[in-house]
Amino acid sequence: MAAPRFQAPTNDFFSELKNRINDHFEQKGITPSGNSKLFTKAIILIVSLIGLYVHLVFFTPPAWLAVLECVLLGGVGASIGFNIMHDGAHGSFSDRKWLNNLAGLSLNLLGGNVFMWNTKHNVIHHTYTNVDGVDDDLDARPFLRLCESQKKYKLHRFQHFYFWAIYAFLYIYWIGFSDFQKYFTGKIGDFKIAKIKRSEHISFWAFKLAFVVIFALVPIYMVGFVSWLVGFLVFTMSTGLIMSVVFQLAHTVSETHFPLPEPKTNKIEEAWAIHQLQTTANFATNNKIVSWFSGGLNFQIEHHLFPKISHVHYPEISKIIKKACQDYGVEYIEFPKLRTAIYSHIMHLRSLALAN
């Protein structure tokens, strides 16, 4: 599928919005990148990850505590991805490029690959959000049907019950299969990946090997194969479930759109900024715990419109964006509570399970 194009803006909504956002930072005398709050959070998360890992591997806690710590390890790993890697990969963690690159590499240490992520997420997903056949985040075939344009299989009749299990295996599928598929095919869906430099080849294999050593070989040597396998599954399934839920609540809910390009022109009906607002939703933005843990990804509208701005600024700029949407009559999709967003996601899956 050729990359679709967007319509030209019919008004000055996004230009005006960008001006208002720029004025906000100028008036406050601050930069759009991360600040001391983000750096402190990063240190807390990294120290927590190391502490949990060391205690699990080298101090052999009782089984009940080990399982709990593996769940926490999965949660901390997901939060490092949300807060450190995500901002770093978007260039918003810091105003220093080397620090953004370092933050992005945290994904590699956790078994992923930031080079593949940048193409899949920053380029494809952020441009063609919720466009079936282009946005790779919508492709959960054959296990899940995430929009009406996707083919329905018999097992989808029950997807609103079993989707939790699919989400739990996302992380291990990603680092153990999906990255390698992209690496060897040179494609993400129908999109060709940019030519991989020698340094990226070395980085890919070196970090994959490092992950195996740190999260498999060393623990197996210290605690034995069975104990490691149980702990590893608890860790990776916790990470996968948390990551999946956070990202799915932002896009695959009943209220968001799943537009397809017009067949003859290959154009999306709306301009890019309006498209982002129609395909993206916020949730639980007044919940400080959710905001802290998820790296502001509950402010997904702000992130999709301004991915170069660090998530620590989202609560403030969300007020500006809401006001601009009101002024221009643009819908701003938001769920006040986490549970209402989860309910909408389940209802979305259920409607697709029942529809033809």
Rank of each mutant, 00 (worst) to 15 (best):
L241P: 01
E200Y: 08
G224K: 09
L352T: 02
T280E: 15
G91S: 08
F163N: 06
E26N: 13
G74Y: 01
F247W: 12
W174S: 02
Y162Q: 00
L233D: 12
Q326H: 13
K197N: 14
T285G: 01
E331Q: 14
E148H: 10
F235R: 02
I46N: 05
A66W: 15
Q159E: 02
R339K: 15
A216Y: 08
Y332P: 07
H90M: 04
Y171M: 08
N282H: 00
H86C: 04
G34T: 02
A210C: 06
L65N: 10
N287M: 15
W174I: 02
Q181R: 13
G329T: 03
R145A: 04
K195M: 11
K28P: 14
D179T: 05
H160K: 02
I214K: 04
K322I: 10
K37M: 13
L241Y: 03
N11Y: 02
D136S: 12
K288V: 08
I30A: 12
A355I: 11
T31E: 01
L146G: 00
Q278A: 13
N122Y: 11
G29P: 14
G91H: 07
F143C: 08
G176F: 03
P307F: 00
Y171C: 06
T285Q: 03
P263G: 05
R20Q: 10
T239L: 10
T256G: 08
S318Y: 04
L354Y: 15
S33W: 07
N118D: 13
S203R: 13
Y173L: 11
L170N: 02
L49Y: 05
P263Y: 10
D190N: 08
